[in-house]
Structures are given as structure tokens and as C-alpha cells.
Write a protein that binds this DNA or RNA. Structure first.
Lengths: 331, 331
DNA sequence: CTGAAAGCGCTAACAG
DNA sequence: CTGTTAGCGCTTTCAG
């Protein structure tokens, strides 16, 4: 691998000039610049990003740390982030924590050690430790779940969405809704549960039925199982995310329950498969791509300006998409 | 941020000793080692990974470059890779190319410049340029799609799977199967198409119906549209991946075609939603997690041993999972 | 077993 | 406008 010095030698200039040319400094004589470019090209020179980062104390890479790569919500976010990062000439490195605080800590450390230009984080819990990033002055924006720190954030108003979904269940004639809630530690899970409970309380006279579980297919299946095994089981389910919904569907099918007659279902997240299951799934859609886009925009501002800004907070809204699974059909 | 020198000063030793302690060199006096650890801890010292990488000419990060984060096949691979990388103390950085050769080139460059310890790549086309990685001696293993180079690879025998799926369609009584094929450039797409054609030819007397399209939901929808608009449309579809299958489903529904009566469908990839659509989708399942696991194992061997090995090639098999969508029901 | 010192490849003052 | 030079923070010979 040729180094900057080889290029300098070949072009008959100093390394400083090579560096200037390669970094588009405008103050270089055109003829020299050409010689440098030719030499660099002939040698197949590639700047060593590590050395550059060490010197500059920052790279042109941002890290996106998410909880679950297989959740379509996060992959849609990823697209949003990538689109704006790319436009600014940054690459995005995706890190999957799998809801594991240990992995999250590891990736936070990697991000710091690799001197990424910035990080977008969906924290496992509100107490995830970002102090090192903070000390290292690495720009950070938090998405999806809140953090107990004053930082830039892009959130979705889960509570409202959950409340609306539950009200819809009730308005459709279901009498005994329950909530398949996510894990206690996730703010989104508790927001959605609270939205659900809010609607239940407003309706009055209803038992507060819910079950915490991990945001996974298995978690959803287990929660549904517990709920449906109750002496007086619920007749409808509000599910906290689409991964869980798959598990709920599995359990419902296993029991031979007919959606629309024996049970009503509505879930958070408009997964790509939602319209195609039977019956089509009603959902509370989150503007996932938008979350990613806005987060990346906030991050890029900080990265590029470098100036310290007041923490900014953007909150987006959900959309209720009514399909069939939540409707109550005449017997 | 404290540097190694600060730790050395605080512990009253040289930077070399600090480095040795932090890298678990066994040849350090226990008492000194303790002093170093205490000092490092008190100062909140974190080694600068960039500087370390520059010196060592390698980091403890591997890159996984895939075509589509939202495809469950790739996310399952990701899990496999992460599990074994983590076991060896490596972090995996996921890069999403979105089937865009430009992005692929960018990430390959990033991988080289960031001096990752190794890369696992699902190449866009068989001619993707990995020469720079090769020159830089970065261990590489290719997955999913072939590359015109002698490198370690983990593939799935697509052709057999496609052939079996098509034979099943024919054996179920469908008379006019067509293939919703992926993009020409992807070896998986052409393998699957060839498997399909193989079965069609063996059966004899059948028209060779197929349509190339991108591996996306939209691609699948468009291909289905063309095929179903034929003067004599097919009565069954073999679809090349699960993203496309969603699009096919959409188009089929739009036309009011009843799966099982008017049309039979079978697709590659056992997406999580496959059992839950109506009717449940028959699929050719790929051992995705296994692909990731094996690929990471091959990579880790190279990374850790550092010795040049002969290129190795592992090929895994598919499994036909018959559900309802491919069955032909009596009218 | 430990320390001094030489870089890894690049950028950015600082001179000229 | 261009070159010289001093590091960025760490690891690793090489002496002692």
C-alpha cells in the first residue's frame, strides 16, 4: 500500500501538498495539483483513514446503534439515516444491540474508540451510560426511547397512538381489551402501556389487563399465552410492537381463535406484512423513515457546525391505520 | 480524555508498561500491573482505538456488508455473524448497500480505510471490486452471491431449492408456472431462475415464463404484473425472495386472485410472516443464521491465525417447507 | 522485567 | 503558494 510520502515523491512535491490536494484545499497551484492527482492515481494510493482520524480526531463515519435489526421499524429508520448521511458524505455503521445492555456498552465504546463523527442511539434503558461520548464531545442524538440526559432526541408520541388504538378497540365493540406490553425498561413500552391504560380508565368499569414481555416474537407469544389463560380472558389485544404481534398471531392461531369474532387485535408498527395476513392487521404506524431522517439531520448539524447547541427535541406523531383485525364482526 | 501517558505518570511507570498491562502481557510484575490498573481506572482511561489501530495496522472490528437490511434473510445472517464475532471479542459493523454498487464501493473503501480486521461481503455482482481489500491483505469471506475471485465463501445451493419448489408446484397440479426472478446481476437470482427452468424443462411441453426484477417488494409487484398481464397468464408463481413475495401478494390481491384456486405461490426465504399470511406461504427456506455463523467462523480463523490459507468454499442446503399457498385446491 | 525511543500515516501550524 | 516539521496516542523493538 503506497503512503502519502510515496505520492509526494512521485509527484515531486511535499506530503503537505499532497494532503492539500487530496483534501481539496483551494490554495494549490493547478499544475502541481494535477501532478499529485496523476501520481496518486498511478500508484493506486488510498489515504489511510485511521491515520487521518488520529490526526483530525474524527472520522467521516457515524454510528447508528439500534436494538433489533430484524425489526422493520429500525430498518426503516436506518434508511432515513443513511439517506441524509450519504448526502453529507458520511457513511453509517449500523450496530445491533439485540436489547442487550452489554452489547450496547460495547458499541458505545467502539464508537468512542473509533472516533466516529457522531452517534444516533436507541438506548436500551433510560439510564444507558453515554457519559464517555459526552466527555469525548461526540455529537449524539437519541431516538425512539428516552434517556435521562439532556440530549438531542427524535421521539414518536407513543402514548397518543396507544390511546387511540385502544379507544378504537373499545369503539368497535370489544369489551375486554388487554395490552401485550414491551419490556418495563423501555420508555416506549411504558408509554404505550400508559396510553392503553388511559383509554381503559376513560371508558370506565374495565379491568386493567396487561403483561410485560420482551419486544420479540417469543415475548409476544408468551404474553398472549398468559393473558388468554386468564380465568376470564380478554376479548381483544393491543400489542406494543410488530415483532410481538407475530408471536401473538401464533398463539391465537394455535388456540383456534378467529380474529374478528373471538378476538380483536391491533398492534404498533406498520410492518410490511401487516396488510397481507389474514385478516389484514390494523396498526398504529410510526413514521420510522422520518425518525431516521430527522435524527440524522440533527446530528449532521452538530457534526458539521461543531458549535455547541441547546439540546433539541422533536416529537412525531403516529397514524392509526384501520384494517380488519381490530373490527368486531357480527357472529 | 486521559492518554496513556497520563496513566503512566500516575502509576509511576513508563507508557510501555501501561500498554503491556492493558494488553494482558504476562510479563509484568504483579504489583506494577496493579498500580497501572488502579491509575487507569481512577483516571477513567480508555485506550484510543484509532491510535492503537494505526500502530497495529488492524482493529478489533469486522465489517458485514449486505445488500438489504430490511430483508429478514440478511438480518438472520447478521445474528449468526454477531454471535461468533462476539465470542472472539470482535464487534461487527453492519453496512447496508441497498443493492447500490456505489454504496458497496464506498463501504469497501471505508472497511479498508478503517482497517477493519476482516470483512464479510454479500457482493452486488460477481464483478464487485475487492482488489483493494485483497492488496491490503484484509481477510474476506463472501456470502450469498458468488464473486469471480478465489475467496472463502459460504453459499446456499439455490438451484436445487428452486428446482424442488418448481417440481412441487407441478406435482401439485399447476399447469403453467412462471418465475418472478431477481436481478440479472445477482448470482442467486440466476441460480434460482435456472433451477426453475430446469424443472420446467424436465416436465416438458411448458413455456418458459419468467421476469427479471429487483429484489424488492416493488420489483416483485411489477414482475407479477407483467406476468399476469400476459395473454395466457401463468397459473402459479415461483418467487425468488421474500421481499418480492410481498409485492406479488399485493398484486395478486389487487386482482382478486384466490391463492390455491386461481393461483399457486411458493417463494424463497422463510420470512417470519410466512406462516401467518392467508393462506400460509410455502417456502424454500435458507439456513440464514448458519450462513452467518459459518462465514464468521471462516473469517475469524483467518483473522486470528493470520496465516494464508487456501480459499475454502462451504455450500449449505435449502429446505422445502410446504404450507398452503402452493397447494392446488379442488374448485 | 522495564524503559527509551522510534515510528504507524497523516494533517496543520508555521515559516519561507 | 509550498515545504518543513511536529505531533495525534499507541505499540513494540531494542537495550539495559
Amino acid at each position: 500500500m503506497p503512503k502519502i510520502n510515496d505520492v509526494a515523491l512521485a509527484a515531486g512535491v511535499s506530503t503537505a501538498t499532497v494532503s492539500r490536494v487530496l483534501n481539496n484545499s483551494k490554495t494549490v497551484n493547478a499544475e502541481l495539483a494535477d501532478r499529485v492527482r496523476v501520481a496518486a492515481h498511478q500508484l493506486g494510493y488510498r489515504p489511510n483513514g485511521i491515520a487521518r482520524s488520529l490526526r483530525r480526531r474524527s472520522s467521516d463515519v457515524i454510528a447508528l446503534i439500534i436494538n433489533d435489526v430484524s425489526n422493520p421499524f429500525f430498518t426503516a429508520i436506518t434508511r432515513g439515516v443513511e439517506d441524509v448521511a450519504q448526502r453529507s458524505g458520511y457513511s453509517v455503521l449500523l450496530c445491533n444491540t439485540d436489547e442487550d445492555p452489554g452489547k450496547e456498552a460495547t458499541y458505545l465504546r467502539v464508537a468512542e474508540q473509533q472516533q466516529v463523527a457522531g452517534v444516533i442511539l436507541s438506548p436500551n434503558t433510560a439510564t444507558s451510560d453515554v457519559s464517555r461520548l459526552f466527555n469525548a464531545q461526540v455529537p449524539l442524538v437519541v431516538i425512539d426511547r428516552t434517556l435521562n440526559e439532556p440530549v438531542d432526541s427524535v421521539m414518536v408520541h407513543s402514548l397518543n397512538g396507544a390511546e387511540a388504538a385502544t379507544q378504537h378497540l373499545l369503539a368497535s365493540g370489544w369489551k375486554r381489551p388487554a395490552c401485550v406490553a414491551g419490556p418495563r425498561e423501555a420508555s416506549t413500552a411504558s408509554d404505550r402501556l400508559h396510553g392503553f391504560l388511559e383509554a381503559v380508565r376513560q371508558h370506565g368499569n374495565l379491568e386493567e389487563l396487561y403483561e410485560y414481555a420482551p419486544f420479540t416474537q417469543e415475548g409476544g407469544a408468551n404474553a398472549a399465552k398468559s393473558l388468554l389463560d386468564l380465568p376470564t380472558p380478554p376479548d381483544s389485544l393491543f400489542v406494543a410492537n410488530s415483532q410481538m404481534a407475530l408471536g401473538v398471531l401464533d398463539e391465537v392461531r394455535r388456540r383456534g381463535l378467529r380474529i374478528g369474532y373471538d378476538i380483536g387485535i391491533i398492534t404498533f408498527d406498520d410492518a410490511p406484512w401487516a396488510p397481507f395476513i389474514s385478516p389484514p392487521m390494523s396498526v398504529v404506524a410510526q413514521p420510522a423513515y422520518e425518525v431516521g431522517r430527522r435524527a440524522a439531520e440533527l446530528l449532521m448539524e452538530r457534526v458539521i457546525s461543531g458549535t455547541p447547541l441547546e439540546p433539541r427535541e422533536v416529537t412525531l406523531s403516529t397514524t392509526l391505520i384501520l384494517r380488519e383485525s381490530s373490527k368486531r364482526l357480527p357472529a
